[in-house]
Simulated assay, not measured.
Amino acid sequence: MDSIFHEKQEGSLCAQHCLNNLLQGEYFTPVDLSSIAQQLDEEERMRMAEGGMASEEYRTFLQQPSGNMDDSGFFSIQVISNALRVWGLELILFNSREYQSLMINPINEKAFICNYKEHWFTIRKLGQQWFNLNSLLTGPELISDTYLALFLAQLQQEGYSIFVIRGNLPECEAEQILGIMRVQQQQRPRLIGEEEAQTSSGSRSVALGQSEMGFVVEDEVVDEDEELKRALALSRQDIDVEDEEADLRRAIQLSMQGAVMCNKSSECEVGNVKSGSQAAGSAAREQREGQNETLTAEELRKRRQAYFDRQQQQTQTNIPQPKDTQPTGSSGSVNAGCEGDQQPKPSQ
């Protein structure tokens, strides 16, 4: 993920860190700012010389050290103002009566530069969120819109001079990234002096989302990849629903076809009952009991024939038999031997 540029404190070059953190890049070096300071010193000397090089004021001015820089790396507001003028940016005193009369909400501004006892630091808006880019901190500090006004009021109470930045700031990657997402900070940065494991200093980029600064994407902000995954999941659900509906339609069609086939079979069976005897009707019922089996015409004929044979045998078995009678005359040979194999005795 792209980074917020945060230049940490090195020596007394807080003005350089302030400008680079504001512009989000290594735009100025100590040599650049020293050149601007020397140019300002020369312009001041020329103005003082207009009153006479032999004057007491001029000799005093020459004996005084530069008011725009010193050996420690401090640079004046004039140096910072001239450096920003190169980028078309202007400084307006936030504490001034003229600016306060405009009643502008601080969250509608783009950035602030703050100074107290020769220390400079930047507060800048990146995307839709504010960050304290103080070079004395171990990393950028997220400032909520609600807390911004309170923070500026606290700085004023402590004696800070605050300047509003007007103009178009250079484009930066952090501005583009935070323009489409918001972050939360789980761990606040500390002062460099309080950082026990501090091993490096100078220019550094702190990546959004790194555990060191505790930046995480807010829950309500949806990543584009996640949005795409959800869209694909929804489309797959739609396809599944369409497949289920298609399966249901096919099942209904098959059930309707089965109903038509059953109706045709029933009509055939009714015709057989009307044209046949009671035995044929029983054969039709037997056929319905075995409707799950697939029978050929020959098999069906054989089954019916077997059924007819069983019915005839049962009918013959149920016919009552006549009682035994004594035959008359000598020709009664039909029932001979039926009475326990006894032969009639001849007459005397």
Rank of each mutant, 00 (worst) to 15 (best):
D32S: 12
Q342W: 09
G159L: 03
A231E: 15
D71V: 09
E227K: 13
I252A: 13
E173K: 13
W87I: 07
A83E: 00
G202T: 00
G193Q: 03
W130A: 00
S330Q: 14
T146D: 10
T138R: 03
F215M: 04
L23E: 03
L169A: 01
T146C: 08
Q64P: 08
M181N: 06
K125R: 06
S201C: 07
W120V: 00
A306L: 11
N132E: 01
L13Q: 00
R236N: 14
R303H: 02
L91R: 02
M256I: 10
S161V: 08
R310G: 07
S331F: 12
R97P: 11
A284I: 09
Q64C: 10
M69W: 10
A49E: 12
Q312T: 14
A279K: 08
V221D: 07
Y58E: 08
F75Q: 01
G209D: 05
S266Y: 14
A306G: 11
G139E: 00
K125Q: 00
D2Y: 10
S3F: 03
N68S: 10
A207R: 13
E245W: 11
E90Q: 14
K323R: 12
S211M: 08
E267K: 14
A149K: 04
E194I: 00
V241I: 15
R310C: 05
V260T: 13
W120E: 02
W87M: 10
M256L: 13
Q129N: 00
T296A: 02
N68E: 09
S200A: 11
G337C: 06
E224H: 13
